[in-house]
Amino acid sequence: MAKILVVDDAEFLRVRLTKMLDVDGYEVFQAENGLKAVALYKEIHPDVVLMDVTMPEMDGLTALKEIVSFDAKARVIMLTALGQESVVLEAVKSGARDFIVKPFEHERVSKAITKLLA
């Protein structure tokens, strides 16, 4: 069972994503900021990370960079929003494998993960 790490400071988003991924049959882990995400990544080695950009403690971009420097093969999908175009580009440059724009449909998330796991 593939492990997915969901990183978002908004509990609502975490809950919703967890439910989606639960339905898709993944094992879901949650972190509420970049700092916790990096720590959890090192511990559980998730197959895919869904990472919010704007978070307290440590933002998604920094966490992405830390994760990629720890594991160059890390599959991180950034969760972004309108107005974060330049961040997205930087994220992709820093090794993000995909990005999903909020609000997103279940299908979009499923697809992105399936693609990366293929």
């Binding site: 400071d9 908004a10 509990e11 975490r14 809950v15 967890t18 639960d22 094992e27 879901v28 882990f29 949650q30 509420e32 900021n33 307290p56 403690e57």
Partner: peptide, 9 residues
Amino acid sequence: MMLSERRSS
């Protein structure tokens, strides 16, 4: 699944 902390910090 990990239990999440309810409140985001």
